[in-house]
Design a protein around this nucleic acid. Structure first.
Length: 154
DNA sequence: GCCAACGTTGGC
DNA sequence: GCCAACGTTGGC
């Protein structure tokens, strides 16, 4: 089983919206970066655990834990010209972009701010904290996952 | 809202 | 295939 961190813009799709979804499950659309796409397409498996991370202020940080419940399939929002994530390069017979379904396991009682993550010695190596990091889907270690969960759950 | 850092695009 | 210009991301 692998561990991941996925970013969602807090003012676009916060964890509170996922809480309200049927079965607390949603499709993770809008990933338009090849490195992130490759992780989704090639490495994410059902049962993998995911840190739901709020990016873009308001404030930034880890908001909860999800689980992958459906493996990669074409991101259909790329086919829809009306959709903000529309990408004409992605064809139905050769989709450029993929997505997975995730189910909320738990929203943290304590929001784990990016500031507290920066201050935690055990999280120093996270790609997330590197300057200029823009990757929206990235692998994390089991230890990093557990450290974040233990802070969030206190 | 600012702006540095990044990925992508496109002219050559 | 280089690389400057551009648009976007995301912490602050």
């Amino acid at each position: 089983m692998k561990y991941w961190l996925m970013k969602s813009e807090a003012n676009c799709y916060p964890i509170e919206l996922l809480e309200k979804e049927k079965n607390q499950t949603t499709y993770w659309d809008g990933v338009r970066n090849y490195q992130a796409r490759n992780f989704i397409r090639d490495e994410m498996k059902v049962g993998d655990k995911v840190i739901f991370f709020h990016s873009n202020g308001a404030p930034s940080g880890a908001a909860g834990v999800c689980e992958v419940v459906k493996e990669a399939y074409p991101d259909f929002t790329a086919f829809d010209p009306e959709n903000p994530h529309y990408d004409p390069k992605s064809k139905k017979d050769n989709p450029a972009w993929m997505m997975v379904d995730v189910k909320l396991i738990k929203k943290f009682k304590n929001f784990v701010s990016i500031e507290s993550m920066r201050q935690n010695k055990k999280l120093q190596k996270m790609q997330l904290l590197k300057q200029g990091n823009r990757l929206s889907v990235m692998p994390i270690t089991k230890e990093e996952f557990e450290v974040i969960v233990s802070i969030g759950n206190l």
